[in-house]
Design a protein around this nucleic acid. Sequence first.
DNA 1: GTTAAATTTGAACGAGCGGTAGAATTTTAG
DNA 2: CTAAAATTCTACCGCTCGTTCAAATTTAAC
Lengths: 215, 215
Amino acid sequence: MSEKISTAGPGRKTPAEGKDTPPRVRLSQRAIVATAAGLFARQGFGATSLDDIGESLGVTKGALYYHVRNKEEILKLIFMTVLTVSEEPLRRIAEAEMPPAQKLERAIAHHVAVAADRSPAMTVFYREEVHLNGPFAREIADRKKAYERLFEVIIEEGQAAGFFRPGLDPKIATFGILGMCNWMSQWYRAGGTYGPEQIAAMFSQIVEGGLLLPA
Amino acid sequence: MSEKISTAGPGRKTPAEGKDTPPRVRLSQRAIVATAAGLFARQGFGATSLDDIGESLGVTKGALYYHVRNKEEILKLIFMTVLTVSEEPLRRIAEAEMPPAQKLERAIAHHVAVAADRSPAMTVFYREEVHLNGPFAREIADRKKAYERLFEVIIEEGQAAGFFRPGLDPKIATFGILGMCNWMSQWYRAGGTYGPEQIAAMFSQIVEGGLLLPA
DNA sequence: GTTAAATTTGAACGAGCGGTAGAATTTTAG
DNA sequence: CTAAAATTCTACCGCTCGTTCAAATTTAAC
């Protein structure tokens, strides 16, 4: 799961590299994963062949196997990417000293930002989880649950501090909030009417204040 | 898309049938679709073979082809089922004479009820849409959009009538609400702590009143 | 330029799957 | 019981796809 992540082998660097050689994208594990994420998001994991991925990269599928163990590993790497990008920032927000409402706002903003920024990977993350098996599937499930738990705790704190409506199950509220955000993978497109910040603001408005105007 | 939906052929009825013969489940299009929905939801469309479906029904895969044109049609029928069950009740709610808040509550309750009642089909509906193609894909997309539009209108009406917070884009609000509900396919299990009505009530509470207590 | 490592190619294999057709079996009507 | 219709089974075909591997090619170091 976490062996060699090195992208370039020994015979890879040009003398004048390291600051000005971005013309052609060298085949690498990262490039494969990024391209595959896009294809998986658009066509589905099962419906995307290694030939497809190779073609998108201008390479034969055989070449992929030098950088990646097999198709499953590509999928695994996509999942790892999403979790890696998501977990730590949220943990920092959860641990920060802040009024609950602000914590929740930032957590939502963070989650929406990731959903927007890593849109294809996010789509794969929440659609293709069925294709994971063995201990890795377990690991992902656990970390996902831990991630959700952070939202839960924020809500619990808000309730305990008397800021949030009591009696509302924090688990369900969390499911609702994450549902709102994660559903973005079904409609959000970069360059649309609203950017991530605006979407996050609207979601926060709904979640905190509700649609109803005070009578 | 809508040829023979008949479940039993001419040589099908037993003299004493029609009110007391439910012991063994006869193979039928409906049974195939129901079983397939469960398998598709659990393993994914692409990862479920016709052999799997046949085995779950105690039948060879060849038998399936007497009731269904091909694998794709099974998927199509699942989509039709979801839409058929969802559309009309929501339309009735949208057209009813009711205060906007109540309309929204009923719409949410309806959607949550469908999500809970048709959980596997719903999971397939929102996960395997990529596998549709041609005019059918278009039809589904259009009807889905029309369904969302009904929520949108309810919110617009609420804003116009001065009950709902103005300035909030009804499209985004709709995405948020439907996201909350549809996300149930990722966590809801029948027999859990809360039933559909309770979940719907909590979602309504969040969407209408928000988490924040009036200061 | 030469050499060794790194990377890619091209071809092939084997498994699994969707689909098909005719034979075989079951069911219903008379 | 019999014939016809309905339903299921068995066996098979062709195709796609993931994977492997030795050969060919490119790249980097000296």
